[in-house]
């Protein structure tokens, strides 16, 4: 309770963040939140599921693209967004902007987040579905785990789905 008599909210001390999408705009927010949590001294875990697995897939990690179709906030008509090369162009422009803001590319970001001590896990159901193995992932991925394992890991903290 503070001196005005209000009960001050308790600080968040642990977060578990699920990344379920494989587009650039689907991956970055979760990574930024996980990295920020560690920088603030919180415990953090990242759980990659479905197309989010591309963010930790060794061969795909450096080729993540922005979705230019079906995304009204891109302000590009769907038909134009579907033209060959549009997604690559939009990705290139966005990467340039982020570089200026000192936001690292996804590959480097994952490496850095691993160094912060954030846990990184792949979802077993998705890994089986896409016929992947641990060897397909970047070395920062600690394990392939079930949803039950994830809830055990997330115990006592907040869960964020992205």
């Amino acid at each position: 309770m503070d001196d005005t008599g209000k009960i001050s909210p308790e600080k968040i001390t642990k977060v578990s963040i699920i990344i379920s999408k494989g587009s650039l705009e689907g991956i970055y927010p979760g990574l930024i939140m996980a990295n920020g949590a560690r920088a603030e001294g919180m415990e953090a875990n990242l759980f990659f599921t479905f197309f989010g697995l591309d963010a930790i897939h060794a061969k795909r990690i450096d080729h993540i693209k922005v979705a230019t179709v079906g995304n009204p906030a891109m302000h590009i008509p769907t038909l134009i967004g579907s033209l060959p090369g549009m997604s690559a162009l939009a990705t290139h422009m966005m990467n340039k902007t982020m570089d200026k803001l000192d936001i690292p590319p996804i590959g480097e970001f994952i490496e850095m987040i691993g160094d912060t001590g954030c846990g990184m896990y792949a979802c077993k159901a998705s890994v089986d579905m896409f016929k992947l193995t641990k060897a397909d992932f970047v070395p920062q991925v600690q394990d392939i785990i079930t949803v039950g394992d994830f809830y055990d890991l997330a115990a006592g903290g907040q869960i964020i789905f992205t």
Partner: peptide, 28 residues
């Protein structure tokens, strides 16, 4: 500086920053 910049330019790696300042290097 941000943790990333610290890791790149201070001469102390990101991994070591978290070992040195376990409660979050940026803040602590």
């Amino acid at each position: 500086p941000t943790v990333r910049l610290l890791g790149k330019t201070s001469g102390v790696s990101v991994k070591d920053l978290y070992l040195l300042f376990p409660k979050g290097p940026a803040k602590m």
